[in-house]
Amino acid sequence: MSEAITREEVAKVARLARLRLSGDELDMFTEQLGQILEHARDMNALDLADVAPTAHPFGLTNVVREDVVEESLDRDTVLAMAPDARDQRFAVPRIQGEAP
């Protein structure tokens, strides 16, 4: 995290997220993301050797539910929300390439 984020890296992240950004937007987000990463760098400057990493604000573990079947949504309601449906299924446009 020693280098500032580059315009190319922002463009790549945008491409992976399927976001089409204009040149101006790329400049803007490069600067904004740079500022966020700058904040992380500030924290890196601190001696945190004795502090455990925090991935969640609450120290909760093992939040589980019992294996009980609950009612699902009504199919007609669900499919009515979809842009397109056929044969009780969601219809999607031609898929480019196979599943990952």
Partner: peptide
């Protein structure tokens, strides 16, 4: 399991399409 990994929809092979969704 009886239900899905993160919700209570039934985990069942062969149900009518899109009947076990939430």
């Amino acid at each position: 399991t009886k239900s899905k990994l993160f919700c209570g929809c039934e985990n069942h092979f062969g149900s009518e399409p899109n009947t076990n969704v939430c």
